[in-house]
Design a binder for these strands. Structure first.
Length: 570
DNA sequence: GCCGTTTTCGGCCCGACTGTTTTCAGTCG
């Protein structure tokens, strides 16, 4: 896929241009990058099919960017980009991952101190070289070190959503090979952790050499680390590593169990084995020297006297004990969602029309879909005012006459600093549902932030609180909120907390989902999509819900249309 | 650099917040 690489390059070009205060061009490159990210067709393929003219038909791509795409497809490089990098040889995309660091600060620090990457930045901050510079002070140094510390604590890990579809695709391709009998990802990927390190893939084959040949020669492979008879490690162009192991069929199950982890879960299961006079390893479950299980995971757990445990639960949080007592909950399934209620349309900053969203939602097998455009406080997202909401509602009414699935009228209103909403109540009352979320003043003290959200929960028009903690994974901690009080208020006022499926949000996170479930708080899994390709993120939200042990009954959008409407009327 | 049933030239989502200043630049969403 050339799209990902091109979009990364265009984002960097945008950064370089912004550094030099060049107006408007950065937005153009940024936009092209964004379009490429959401593009289903591969730009390289488009070029090969229809030449530069076809490429120019891509939105946001004109003369100049099209010729850069052409250059990239033909030579694998873009000269002007290489030139920019030579002039400013710093790892911009890395440095700006630190919160509070942007291209201008990166530029100053490079020119004054020669800082090229996070490591050098950390040293400069520790040596107090930064506080003396114009525009920087002691607080800047402190913030930089804090930001770096935050990034480091999740070092080398990737967002599940950033690798998910690449890995799924690879596994599907491997599974399609004739010589591959079984293949599955293991590790934290299989447990669907919100961030993953290396990806482990396990396969069974009579001909490991052929499978490894295929695996290591795929064109997204950047580097082959190690190649053995049954094992191969590669780095993908996107920057993460994948290990493939080919194992004998008779221990596929035990190997899968072993490599899925977590480490702590494995310790717990091995302890159970020992208590039964057995020994569990990646090679199987043994009684003395005889293998009594190993071919399938189910068999391994069964012979241990346990129920099979969904990978998302294997974090040693009490699941082993439940499995021994036959009390593993029936988690929400990946096909249980009947509709996504947090979709932004082109009425606000979204990309697709309501009709397109409804059609995509129908293709996903949904019964209903909810349009939840931003409201007016969020100017950057073109939030709607009262009149625009009413106008949009009319369009939805019209579309509903012909649409095969029901389109619900909603919005994502802003919870202002004092806990009030930015849209008048009489307009909210005309909607099928109202989501409310915090998008500003995220650094309030716990007491005030908690009061603020609870006030919104008490608002009779509000049904759902979106991304309740406001965290951005690997970038921003959750807001200071007393979640216990939020759960209590949600329960008392019968309001729903969102599990936002966006890769960098996944908010509520697993622990809170589990706590909410214990408290009897209802939740909803939404995508917060701004383009129809985001609708597929729902699977990440479901994973998160399963990691929080949520069952179908805990998640309201597993319910049919009438039930969910009834729920919002209450 | 891209785009156009208000334009083929002249526009490009902008306000809040923070840390630095003493009126503002940079970052974020």
């Amino acid at each position: 896929m050339a799209n990902r690489e091109l979009s990364k390059i265009f984002r960097e070009i945008a950064g370089f241009l912004r550094m030099d205060n060049i107006p408007f061009k950065p937005q153009a490159y940024q936009r092209a990058a964004k379009v490429l990210d959401g593009l289903e067709d591969d730009a390289g393929e488009i070029y090969k099919r229809g030449g530069i003219e076809a490429v120019k038909n891509i939105e946001g791509v004109g003369e100049s960017i099209a010729s850069k795409i052409e250059e990239y497809v033909r030579t694998g490089k873009i000269k002007s980009y290489e030139e920019l990098k030579r002039r400013m040889p710093l790892d911009l995309s890395e440095i700006i991952r630190i919160e509070g660091m942007g291209v201008k600060k990166a530029r100053t620090l490079y020119l004054k101190l020669g800082v090229k990457n996070i490591k050098e930045l950390e040293k400069a901050a520790k040596d107090h070289k930064i506080s003396g510079l114009e525009g920087f002070g002691a607080v800047s140094e402190k913030n930089i070190l804090e930001g770096i510390g935050f990034l480091k604590s999740k070092k080398g890990r990737f967002l599940l959503g950033d690798v998910f579809f690449i890995v799924e695709n690879l596994v599907k391709e491997l599974g399609g090979l004739e010589e591959v009998k079984r293949v599955e990802p293991a590790g934290s990927f299989r447990r669907r952790k919100e961030t993953v390190g290396d990806i482990d893939i396990l396969a069974v084959s009579e001909n490991p050499g052929r499978v490894i040949d295929f695996f290591s020669s795929r064109n997204e492979v950047a580097k082959v680390w190690g190649r053995g008879a049954t094992k191969c490690s590669v780095r993908i162009k996107d920057g993460f590593d994948i290990d493939l192991r080919v194992v004998p069929e008779k221990c596929y199950g035990s190997a899968l169990q072993y490599f899925t982890g977590s480490k702590e879960h494995n310790v717990a299961t091995r302890r159970i084995a020992i208590a039964k006079g057995l020994k569990l390893s990646e090679y199987g479950l043994f009684k003395g020297k005889t293998q009594i299980a190993g071919r399938t995971e189910q068999d391994v757990y069964k012979k241990l006297g346990m129920q099979w445990i969904p990978p998302e639960m294997r974090e040693n949080k009490g699941e082993a004990e439940l499995a021994l007592e036959d009390r593993i909950p029936e988690l929400i399934g990946y096909k249980d969602i009947k509709g996504d209620l947090h979709c932004h349309s082109d009425w606000d900053g979204g990309k697709n029309s309501i009709r397109e969203i409804a059609e995509s939602a129908e293709k996903m097998g949904y019964e209903y879909v909810g349009i939840a455009d931003h409201t007016k406080y969020l100017k950057i997202e073109r939030g709607l005012d009262e009149d625009q909401i009413r106008k949009r509602n009319k369009e939805i009414d019209k579309l509903n006459k012909t649409s095969k699935i029901r389109i619900l009228k909603g919005c994502e209103a802003n919870i202002l600093k004092d806990g009030s909403l930015d849209i008048k109540g009489d307009v909210l009352a005309e909607l099928d549902f109202v989501i409310a979320g915090v998008h500003s003043s995220l650094k309030m003290e716990e007491k005030y932030m908690t009061e603020r959200i609870i006030k919104a929960i008490k608002d009779p028009n509000v049904d759902i609180i979106s991304h309740p903690t406001g965290r951005i994974i690997q970038k921003r901690d959750e807001c200071r909120i007393n979640m216990e009080e939020i759960f209590k208020a949600a329960k008392d006022f019968n309001k729903v907390l969102e599990i936002n499926s966006f890769p960098e949000r996944l908010d509520l996170k697993d622990e809170y989902i589990r706590r909410a479930k214990e408290k009897g708080v209802k939740m909803i899994i939404n995508t917060d999509s701004h383009i129809i390709s985001h609708l597929g993120y729902i699977t990440l939200g479901i994973s998160q819900a399963r990691r929080g042990w949520a069952e179908k009954k805990d998640i309201i959008n597993t319910q049919p249309l009438e039930r969910i409407l009834e729920y919002f009327k209450r």
